[in-house]
Computed example of a mutant assay.
Amino acid sequence: MFQYTASNVESSRDVGRARTMAGPESDLEVTAVDTIRAFDRTRWNEVVDRSQLGTVFHRYEWLEAIERGLEYPARHLVVENRTDLVGLFPNFVVSIPKTPFDRLTSIYPGFGGPLLTDDVPESLSCVSDAIPQLCGHRTIVHEIRASNTNFHRYDDHLVAEGYDSSRVDGRFLLNLASGYDAVFEGMDSSKRRAVRRGRDTDHEIDDVEPSRENLGQFYEAYRTRMESIDGTVYPFAFFDRLRAMDERLLLVSLSVEGEYAGGFLALRNDERGILHGFFAAVPSEYFEYHASELVYDYLFQRAIDEGYEYYDFGGGGADFEDGGFTFKEQFGGRLVPNLYWERGISPAWPLVKRGRSLYWQYGE
């Protein structure tokens, strides 16, 4: 039904273009680009704003920060109807841990999925048909990671295209609609006690401008904290690139007894009414001052003041005995599912998928 021709998007770092024509009577054209800079920023973000499923992670600035700050190769699909841009499907090539293979993912870090504003059934078929052509011999699977559960409307189509939706993961959401007093009373008693004790310490907490200097100070605390827990440390270049969307950033700074004690970088998802607590930076030596509880309590209040409906703690895993799981749950967070679809592109994928399942089951 569809004919696909592509330039060398697998290896080129220049702008690559590929077209999928939906039959002779179709006005749709699907184009693959390997840099977000191939498109006008305003035009791209207008589609995000028009879409019912758009998120802050679909915005031009977030994608550019991933591309230029993390240097993940981009494989974005765009759908045009004559001269109108009617669909976006951002993707990046990311390595699969502990394997020599890569995955094509929408989006990492963050959440993605196709944004289609017109001719939706045909547009969805076009981008689904184009995906395998974006994968080379090392890119063996396409993954869609969606935090917006409204993407479930595409499940039947995706399953029919060979996607598997059996993968399960989740994150914690805190409902802010009832106001701060209700949020505070909804915390576990140990968390309420920790917040009260933290308030009695000699501290200052406020949000600050996400300038390069302030981000640099935050980054040192972030790197120290992530290294202490063997977490992923993103390079400073990524955070520096995020300054292009400074109106979507909430950078919190905490000082204890006159010394900088870390902070938090949250992301304003105005499209969905959510404040995402994405990057924590409170070194462990300040835990005795209940620094983490102070920062989270401040974030909840700021989110409520700015009119957000939810605070998103991020990943919750699947182990209720895990310390991070318990920490988020005790703040009153509710575990909600993420949506995942995976579509194998190579015969190697079933073997890698089986190995991943064994690793999750038995660990290292």
Rank of each mutant, 00 (worst) to 15 (best):
D246A: 15
F218K: 02
H203N: 04
N214V: 07
L215V: 08
T224D: 15
D246C: 10
Y219T: 03
Y219P: 04
F238I: 10
E247C: 06
D230K: 14
M245Y: 10
T224K: 12
D206L: 03
E247F: 06
V195T: 03
E213V: 14
Y219F: 09
L249G: 14
D206H: 02
D240N: 15
R248Y: 09
S189R: 13
P210N: 13
S190H: 01
D240F: 07
E209G: 05
A194K: 02
N214H: 11
N214D: 05
L215M: 10
L250N: 04
R212N: 11
P210E: 12
E227K: 15
G198S: 03
A221N: 07
Y222I: 10
D200W: 06
S190Q: 05
L242S: 08
N214W: 02
L242Q: 08
Q217Y: 08
F236P: 14
D206E: 07
I205C: 01
D246T: 14
S228L: 07
H203D: 02
Y219R: 06
D202Y: 01
D200Y: 12
R196N: 00
R193E: 01
D240E: 15
G198E: 00
Y234D: 06
R243P: 12
T201E: 07
S211A: 08
A221L: 03
F218E: 02
V233K: 13
G231N: 15
D230P: 05
P235N: 13
F239G: 03
R196A: 00
T232E: 11
M245H: 12
S228E: 08
D207E: 06
L250A: 04
E209P: 09
A237R: 08
R223V: 11
D206A: 09
R199E: 00
S228A: 15
G231K: 14
G216I: 10
L242F: 07
R241A: 15
A244D: 15
S211H: 07
E227G: 13
E204I: 08
R248K: 14
T224I: 09
L215D: 05
Y222N: 10
L249W: 05
T224M: 13
A237W: 01
L215I: 12
